Amino acid sequence: MNKTKRNPAGEALTGLILDLFRANSLLLTAGDRLVTSLGLTSARWQILGAIADAERPEPVAWLARNLGANRQNVQRIVNDLARDGLVVFETNPHHRRAQLVVLTDKGRQVYDAAGRLQVPWVNGLSDGLSVKEIEIAHRVLNALRDRLEGAGEG
């Protein structure tokens, strides 16, 4: 039986993907440690960031889409954030059932505090890496993400 073999780029990409899985796990653990004193987890911090960075309030489904995440998981976390007073739900004039998620003042303060903790951490993490190297890695990750997103459409 003939086995299909990866071409050189496929072999290299497989190694990168495996390293990305490990790096993702390590990033989530580090993020959890970084913001635990604020009552956050990496997941809660990520969703707060999506809400804070949005041009306008969005429903959970849009937040999930923008994050490339499962809507039910985002809904669960948004509900936790609302319970803790970090976000509120507002009426959506365009859709009766899909409420908009809005950051509260307390949510903004917690998100800003997380950002202040992140600065020295990320500066230390970037030590020894050039901006050019980081930009190249970013382009590769974006190309990979775009291909994965496009694969779901076909």
Score class of each variant (00 low, 15 high):
Gly10His: 02
Glu11Gln: 11
Ala12Tyr: 00
Leu13Cys: 04
Leu13Gly: 05
Leu16Met: 09
Leu16Arg: 00
Leu16Gln: 04
Leu16Pro: 05
Leu18Gly: 10
Asp19Asn: 12
Leu20Asn: 10
Arg22His: 09
Ala23Asn: 05
Asn24Thr: 10
Ser25Leu: 12
Ala30Lys: 06
Asp32Pro: 15
Asp32Tyr: 03
Arg33His: 13
Leu34Tyr: 03
Val35Asp: 09
Leu38Ile: 05
Gly39Asn: 08
Thr41Pro: 10
Thr41Asn: 04
Arg44Pro: 10
Gln46Glu: 12
Ile47Leu: 01
Leu48Pro: 09
Gly49Leu: 03
Ile51Cys: 07
Ala52Leu: 06
Ala54Thr: 03
Glu55His: 04
Arg56Ile: 06
Arg56Val: 11
Pro57Thr: 02
Pro57Ala: 00
Val60Asp: 05
Leu63Met: 04
Ala64Tyr: 01
Ala64Lys: 01
Gly68Gln: 02
Ala69His: 05
Asn70Arg: 04
Arg71Phe: 02
Gln72Asp: 14
Asn73Gly: 10
Val74Leu: 03
Gln75Asp: 14
Asp80Thr: 15
Arg83Gln: 13
Asp84Ser: 12
Leu86Ala: 09
Val87Ala: 08
Val87Gln: 03
Val88Asn: 07
Val88Gln: 09
Phe89Ile: 08
His94Val: 07
Arg97Tyr: 04
Ala98Asp: 15
Val110Pro: 11
Tyr111Glu: 08
Asp112Phe: 03
Asp112Leu: 14
Ala113Met: 06
Ala114Cys: 08
Gly115Cys: 06
Arg116Gln: 13
Leu117Gln: 15
Leu117Trp: 01
Gln118Ala: 15
Pro120Met: 01
Val122Phe: 11
Gly124Asp: 15
Asp127Thr: 15
Gly128Thr: 03
Ser130Thr: 15
Val131Lys: 14
Lys132Asp: 15
Ile136Trp: 04
Ala137Glu: 11
Ala137Val: 09
His138Asn: 14
His138Gln: 13
Leu144Lys: 00
Arg145Met: 10
Asp146Lys: 06
Gly150Lys: 06
Gly152Ala: 10
